[in-house]
Simulated assay, not measured.
Amino acid sequence: MFSTQTENDNMLVQNFIRGDQSSLEMLIQRHKNRVYTYIFLIVKNQALAEDIFQDTFIKVIRSLKTGKYTENGKFISWVLRISHNLIIDHFRKERLLNTLSNEDSEFDLFNSAKFSDENIEERLVFEQITADVRRLIDELPEDQRQVIIMRHYLGLSFKEIAERTDVSINTALGRMRYALINLRKIIEKNNLLLTKI
Rank of each mutant, 00 (worst) to 15 (best):
F158T: 03
G155S: 05
I76A: 01
D51C: 05
V133Q: 06
K68Y: 10
K32D: 12
A162K: 07
D55L: 07
Q29T: 15
V79K: 08
F2R: 08
V133E: 07
A131S: 14
K32G: 03
I187R: 00
L124W: 10
E106P: 00
T195A: 09
H84G: 13
M11D: 03
M26W: 12
E50T: 04
S101I: 10
D132A: 10
H90M: 03
V167Q: 08
K93A: 02
N85Q: 15
Y38R: 07
E50G: 11
F126L: 14
R175Q: 09
T37P: 08
Q144S: 03
L180M: 08
G67R: 14
N33D: 14
D143W: 14
S83Q: 13
L194I: 12
R92Q: 04
D143E: 15
R81G: 02
S83V: 09
E142Q: 14
L86A: 02
G155I: 00
L173H: 01
G67A: 04
R135M: 05
F53C: 01
N191F: 04
S168C: 06
L173M: 10
F126T: 15
R95G: 11
N102M: 13
D138Q: 11
I186M: 07
E103V: 10
I169F: 08
A162N: 07
P141K: 10
S23C: 08
A131K: 15
N111G: 14
F57G: 06
V13K: 01
D55R: 05
I149V: 13
Y36I: 00
Y178I: 01
I52T: 04
N98P: 03
L183N: 02
L100A: 05
F16L: 04
L124G: 06
R92A: 02
D166R: 01
Q54V: 12
I161W: 06
K185N: 09
T56K: 04
I149A: 03
H84N: 13
E7N: 06
A162H: 04
E163W: 10
F75Y: 14
I52Y: 04
A179K: 04
T130M: 12
L86K: 11
E50A: 12
L80D: 01
K65F: 03
E94K: 15
D138Y: 09
L192F: 06
S101Y: 12
L12D: 05
M1D: 10
F91D: 00
S116Y: 08
S168P: 03
T165N: 13
N72P: 03
Q5L: 15
S116E: 06
E122Y: 03
D117C: 12
I197Y: 11
S22A: 14
D138T: 02
K32H: 09
F53M: 08
M11K: 11
L183H: 01
L154S: 05
G67F: 06
L192C: 03
K59M: 09
I88C: 00
Q128P: 10
